[in-house]
Amino acid sequence: MHFINVGQGDCTFIAANGVTMLVDCGEEEVSGYVVSYLRKLGVGRLDHVIATHPHSDHMGGMYRIIDVFDVGDVIIPHIPDEQMPDTLFYERFIDSCEANNVTIKEAAVGQTVDIGSAKAEIVAPDGSFYEDINNYSVSFVLTHGDVRCLFTGDAEAESEAAMLQGGRLGKMTIYKAGHHGSAYSSTEELIDVIRPKISVISCGRENSYGHPARSTLKRLTEVSDKVLRTDVDGTVTAESDGREIKISSGRKAA
Score class of each variant (00 low, 15 high):
residue 131 E to G: 06
residue 213 A to C: 01
residue 148 R to M: 00
residue 23 V to N: 12
residue 252 K to H: 05
residue 169 L to I: 11
residue 50 I to E: 09
residue 224 S to Q: 13
residue 242 G to Y: 15
residue 81 D to R: 08
residue 27 E to P: 03
residue 81 D to N: 04
residue 164 L to V: 11
residue 197 K to V: 05
residue 179 H to R: 14
residue 101 N to Y: 04
residue 214 R to K: 12
residue 112 T to W: 12
residue 203 C to F: 01
residue 23 V to W: 12
residue 12 T to R: 15
residue 78 H to I: 04
residue 216 T to S: 14
residue 176 K to G: 08
residue 48 H to Q: 07
residue 66 I to G: 07
residue 227 V to H: 08
residue 55 H to P: 01
residue 21 M to N: 09
residue 236 V to L: 12
residue 148 R to N: 02
residue 128 S to M: 06
residue 136 Y to T: 01
residue 125 P to K: 08
residue 75 I to V: 15
residue 46 L to C: 02
residue 225 D to E: 15
residue 124 A to S: 14
residue 67 D to A: 14
residue 124 A to H: 03
residue 114 D to M: 12
residue 1 M to I: 10
residue 238 A to R: 09
residue 197 K to S: 10
residue 51 A to W: 05
residue 185 S to Y: 12
residue 87 T to H: 01
residue 90 Y to F: 14
residue 89 F to S: 07
residue 175 Y to V: 01
residue 152 T to E: 09
residue 109 V to E: 11
residue 250 G to H: 00
residue 213 A to H: 00
residue 2 H to P: 00
residue 165 Q to T: 10
residue 179 H to W: 13
residue 229 R to K: 07
residue 186 S to P: 03
residue 27 E to K: 08
residue 43 V to E: 07
residue 30 V to P: 02
residue 203 C to M: 07
residue 41 L to D: 04
residue 239 E to C: 05
residue 136 Y to E: 04
residue 49 V to P: 07
residue 22 L to T: 06
residue 222 E to D: 15
residue 191 I to G: 14
residue 44 G to N: 15
residue 52 T to I: 03
residue 224 S to A: 14
residue 100 N to W: 00
residue 91 E to D: 08
residue 107 A to F: 05
residue 115 I to K: 06
residue 94 I to C: 02
residue 114 D to C: 02
residue 137 S to Y: 03
residue 214 R to C: 06
residue 61 G to F: 01
residue 186 S to Q: 13
residue 147 V to C: 01
residue 207 N to G: 07
residue 139 S to E: 05
residue 127 G to A: 02
residue 71 V to N: 14
residue 110 G to Y: 14
residue 178 G to Q: 09
residue 5 N to D: 15
residue 3 F to P: 08
residue 239 E to R: 09
residue 110 G to Q: 10
residue 183 A to H: 01
residue 40 K to E: 13
residue 237 T to R: 10
residue 126 D to W: 03
residue 126 D to Y: 01
residue 63 Y to S: 15
residue 189 E to I: 11
residue 130 Y to K: 05
residue 64 R to N: 13
residue 235 T to V: 07
residue 100 N to V: 06
residue 14 I to M: 08
residue 123 V to F: 03
residue 137 S to L: 02
residue 210 G to S: 06
residue 55 H to C: 05
residue 199 S to C: 14
residue 201 I to L: 05
residue 30 V to K: 02
residue 36 S to H: 10
residue 2 H to Y: 11
residue 92 R to P: 00
residue 151 F to W: 11
residue 86 D to P: 01
residue 10 D to V: 10
residue 224 S to H: 12
residue 12 T to S: 10
residue 151 F to R: 03
residue 182 S to C: 11
residue 187 T to P: 03
residue 101 N to S: 11
residue 107 A to W: 00
residue 88 L to F: 06
residue 68 V to L: 08
residue 170 G to T: 12
residue 210 G to C: 03
residue 214 R to W: 03
residue 6 V to E: 04
residue 161 A to I: 05
residue 119 K to V: 13
residue 122 I to G: 10
residue 27 E to G: 00
residue 224 S to D: 12
residue 76 I to M: 08
residue 58 H to T: 00
residue 8 Q to P: 00
